[in-house]
Design a protein around this nucleic acid. Sequence first.
DNA 1: TTATGTGCAAAGGTTTTGCAATAGT
DNA 2: ACTATTGCAAAACCTTTGCACATAA
Lengths: 149, 149
Amino acid sequence: MGKTVNYHDDLKQCGLKSTRHRIDILEILDHSDEPYTADQVYLELIKRAVSINLSTVYRTLDTLAVNKLLNKLSISKDGRALYEYNRRIHRHYLVCLGCKRIKAIDGCPLEAYDKKLEETTNYTIAGHKLDIYGYCPQCKALGLPKQNH
Amino acid sequence: MGKTVNYHDDLKQCGLKSTRHRIDILEILDHSDEPYTADQVYLELIKRAVSINLSTVYRTLDTLAVNKLLNKLSISKDGRALYEYNRRIHRHYLVCLGCKRIKAIDGCPLEAYDKKLEETTNYTIAGHKLDIYGYCPQCKALGLPKQNH
DNA sequence: TTATGTGCAAAGGTTTTGCAATAGT
DNA sequence: ACTATTGCAAAACCTTTGCACATAA
């Protein structure tokens, strides 16, 4: 988790102006274990007594994602986009189907597979997205609902 | 790809009425290699001179997905839901970042990993979603845009 | 016949956009 | 000072819903 000065530098390196809002948003997402929706970011800013408009949140998230300071995910929590701080660590998510909590898991089981696929398909593989679904220890204890995915 | 009569039986087994619209939609998705958005399904129906309302398409897709005759995916092609015929075959998708075409790939490299994860995390793993991104042979030839994911 | 499915129109929720005002460099 | 960023309000977009009518069983 970087300090404010680093967010400033990161923004400058992208040719972006270093504004309070951008730094706040980077900091919020950098300090979170879970990706946030635009709305969640907005609410967190309001909670911190930051005056900002929701459309600015959307624009800022988009700008930061285009500049690779954030990742935009599509684990559609009911169809809304999710944003996470780009830690430049390749990792995947374990989503609890009970409480919907999202847990990050480091490491990737797919490195060899990607290479194999390049040969098999004649595609150039640029990356992949893997989300894993299950029930966390707590929700498991309450009895499993129907299985998905 | 089933015949009409099978769609009829599948619907009945789910306790659903067998209507022209439902059969048409099942057939469209069953005959497609790619998942469709609600809108794409609607347009295909119109092309086939089927008179239907877009809200009926949404309702039908939802009903069929709840009853597991379709899968609802969240490879957000710009945030819209995608539906595919449920072939009850576990498979993943290879998405071309150039032309956005989606290619299904059979087989799964994650069976062992899922089990390992159950032990490591103490979650019950219910499933996973893996999408792979790259450039298809055609788009590759045109020169690769920037890398994503 | 009777519950289920459908069309239509209207509303809901998320995200985007135009334009004038503001703030960073 | 100059340009990028922001607020505000409105629109765009995808999806859902209420209700009256139509249809499958």
